[in-house]
């Protein structure tokens, strides 16, 4: 049985760990709220752009525009969104396992699958397993996400237009709730236009400069915001996962403190009993 002092020390250390996990949970909850607000704020912009592109594509028969053209998918890029930090349960593990599975299963279908990785956890994991990565980016945070995703998107667009890529997928955790995330594979490029049902009924606009130029202006905007949205979803999922993980850790610490306190009391009682026995034994011997 460990000494009283050792148990007391152990309790103190679990208590301070619990303090940390509780604080981390609160921080994650606050950040989660901000990420969710940002997702909601970005939604009208993304939806409107997508509608416009779909409408323009439909009206102007621009299916042959490079960003809309469906080519034989020889070279595919998979953009994997992970986080910089751990302590968020199976968040990174799940997404990376899906990425590996995807690579394994689709190897035969495409000539080449490139990887682009966001977040240090993903980069380290894949490097450790000797996957070749085309590009890596540090993990994103909420204030800088818009700028960063613009850069990521610009790089992708350049490669796509430069005929180095035929198809681009985003792989990220979609935020469902703090408890659950859904791993999502989404086609980023070529852009998939919406199915517009009222094709002929919409108002006929006057376009300036012309449909082609307009389409060229808005398509990169759409790719930007899609990457941004995926990044936000991924961040919200990360914070949700961290919140849940830290909640569990805090509860586990409570359980552990309970068990240790019991053990401490038992040890103390044993020590008292032992002392009493010693005293009684000593008194007995003097008789």
């Amino acid at each position: 049985m460990p000494s009283l002092k050792a148990i007391r020390k152990r309790i103190a250390s679990v208590k301070s760990t619990q303090k940390i996990t509780r604080a981390m949970k609160l921080v994650a909850a606050a950040k989660l709220r901000r990420a969710q607000e940002n997702i909601l704020a970005a939604r009208p912009y993304a939806v409107k752009l997508h509608e416009l592109i779909s409408e323009l594509a439909l009206r102007a028969d621009f299916e042959d525009h490079p960003l809309l053209a469906h080519r034989e998918p020889h070279r595919v890029l998979l953009v994997v969104m992970t986080s910089d930090r751990g302590m968020c349960g199976a968040f990174n593990t799940n997404i990376l396992r899906t990425a590996e599975k995807y690579l394994r299963e689709n190897k035969a279908n495409h000539e080449q699958i490139d990887l682009s990785v966001v977040g240090r956890k993903g980069r380290d994991y894949l490097r450790h397993r000797h996957y070749e990565m085309k590009s890596t980016f540090p993990g994103l945070d909420i204030p800088g996400a818009l700028e960063e995703s613009k850069q990521i998107a610009d790089g992708i667009i350049e490669d796509f237009l430069g005929d180095n890529l035929d198809m681009v997928y985003l792989l990220y955790n979609e935020f469902k709730s703090a408890m659950s995330q859904k791993i999502t594979v989404e086609q980023l490029l070529p852009i998939v236009p919406l199915e517009l049902d009222d094709g002929g009924a919409a108002i006929d606009f006057v376009y300036e400069p012309d449909k082609q130029t307009l389409l060229e202006t808005v398509m990169p905007m759409y790719v930007h915001v899609e990457v941004y949205r995926a990044a936000l979803e991924s961040m919200a999922s990360e914070f949700g996962a961290r919140m849940t993980a830290m909640e569990n850790a805090t509860n586990n610490a409570s359980d552990m403190i309970g068990a240790l306190t019991l053990q401490f009391n038992k040890a103390r009682q044993a020590a008292i009993t032992k002392e009493l026995l010693d005293i009684v034994g000593g008194a007995e011997a003097l008789k």
């Binding site: 416009l52 006929d204 606009f205 006057v206 376009y207 300036e208 400069p209 307009l214 202006t217 808005v218």
Partner: peptide
């Protein structure tokens, strides 16, 4: 630059 007043035709511009 272009101005928009009420009654403008439906218009899309970059």
């Amino acid at each position: 630059e272009f101005g928009v007043l009420d009654g403008h035709i439906p218009f899309l511009s970059a």
